[in-house]
Design a protein around this nucleic acid. Sequence first.
DNA 1: GAGGAGATATAGACCTCATCTATGATAAAT
DNA 2: ATTTATCATAGATGAGGTCTATATCTCCTC
Lengths: 292, 292
Amino acid sequence: MINNYELYKVFYWAAKTGSLTQAAKALYITQPSVSHAIKQLEDSFGLALFYRNSKGVALTQEGAILYSYIEQSQNFISRAEEKMAALKNLDSGELRIGGSDSLFKHYLLPYLEEFHQRHPGIKLHLNHGTTPEIISFLKEGRIDLGVVRMPIVDSQLEVRESIQLKDCFVAGPRYEQLKGETLSLEMLLEFPVILFSRNSRARMAITELFQSYGYKLKPEIEVGSVELLIEFARKGLGISYVTKEFISKELEEGSLFEIQLDVKLPPTHVGIMTMRNMPLSISARRFIELVQ
Amino acid sequence: MINNYELYKVFYWAAKTGSLTQAAKALYITQPSVSHAIKQLEDSFGLALFYRNSKGVALTQEGAILYSYIEQSQNFISRAEEKMAALKNLDSGELRIGGSDSLFKHYLLPYLEEFHQRHPGIKLHLNHGTTPEIISFLKEGRIDLGVVRMPIVDSQLEVRESIQLKDCFVAGPRYEQLKGETLSLEMLLEFPVILFSRNSRARMAITELFQSYGYKLKPEIEVGSVELLIEFARKGLGISYVTKEFISKELEEGSLFEIQLDVKLPPTHVGIMTMRNMPLSISARRFIELVQ
DNA sequence: GAGGAGATATAGACCTCATCTATGATAAAT
DNA sequence: ATTTATCATAGATGAGGTCTATATCTCCTC
């Protein structure tokens, strides 16, 4: 019907101010433009919308009805524009991150705290899962970014390499005698080993390493969290394979010590994944900047 | 912020159809135009609104938020346009008429019935009052048109002359002896006269007529409605001064008869008043056409 | 893989039409 | 009577929305 919604904006201001001249000022255009715009609306509806008098204009019956709709419409647009500005300023919005519990706790936590402090209006959603789950979440659009261990090979994903993680074997006071010693893989297998559950990336990596030397790594205990790996090692239930960066506190206070091996354990990196060819939300972009 | 609301219309259709190409078809423009419009929106917000892929487009987080507002906005505009079309077609709207009860009942009723039958969607509001009250209603914008007896002299009003009304004196069977007689004004004054209340236009007119001949017309009974004028005359309480057109039924059935006078009583007209220099609502215009 | 079909993006030309300036008309206020 | 508001009208102008043509990319099919 009306093929130029600009006219409604003009109508809205004319009705709101009760004056074509005032509407023109509000819209930063001239009064004849407003006059022309209103005329176009009236012509296309075939209805008079305003009474003109020497003081300004007043809505007709039909004009008042139109206004009751257009007012709502304009309000929504105003609110939309405010909201967009807030999203742009990171005063509003949300950031959905996928990752493992241990990475959240030991790696992302300080960044999350800082981000939240800087942008308290942004709602944070943390989704934990295994690496394949996180990738699915990303592809389904349920998260904005995923934080997992490298390597990731997926052409749909863009991966930014973040800090390096060095995994190592650690033990508690019970195995004091090993402190200072350098063990071979074979020697290590004499002790009870505690590993993370089967589907973890770190577990797979270390299993493969042993395999490449011809050994089979079979854990005495399997646990589901880094906390338990640490706790069990401290209590002396065995030797845990953990990420060194995650136990800096325990190493420092001496409740755990690293067991030196005669082979080098390959380091891994944390990767920050996003969807390739999909624009990042402002909040996601800002968070990644913060982390890197 | 956005100085072209047309862009929102384009955005709405792009989001709704999930395709710039489809949006272009819906808007009868070309795909590059849509592409360009969306780009303008994204640039001015500084936010990506869509993910582009080979199947079409999908809203980003921010785009979805914008859509939730713009959708509402567009819905109001659609409803506004529908409503305007309905008003234009007289499928909807209202018609507010001011007048006296007697004119409503004896003059306007058949027109009101026909108008309502033709346009059942139009709400009718009937406001009764004296002529000055009706004029005030008009000037206050509380009614669209007023129906009163002429003459009306008011430069702000536009008055259309409608049917002629002839007032006359009538009596019931009790005064049978006057049937066929021709009375002078003086003779008439011998009988008890029943008049409408003081502030009525017809009452003023007849009082002035008597005055111009040097007589003073003093009613025996004053009543507030045409129905009572008729009823009192029928019951023989006196001679009523009524509008002939309003008692055609009684004259025909013989329950009342007109008293011939030796002076001619000046006829009046019904006037249909509207505000000069104010556009008439479609319904008012149509109703006036119907009446004339 | 090669090619086709369908999507969006880009570039540049064109021409409409929204806006402008200038002025008229009218009413209220001084 | 004059000034100062208002909105309406006329005609000129140029910004920018829309177009055509083409590029680019992805998916799907053979």
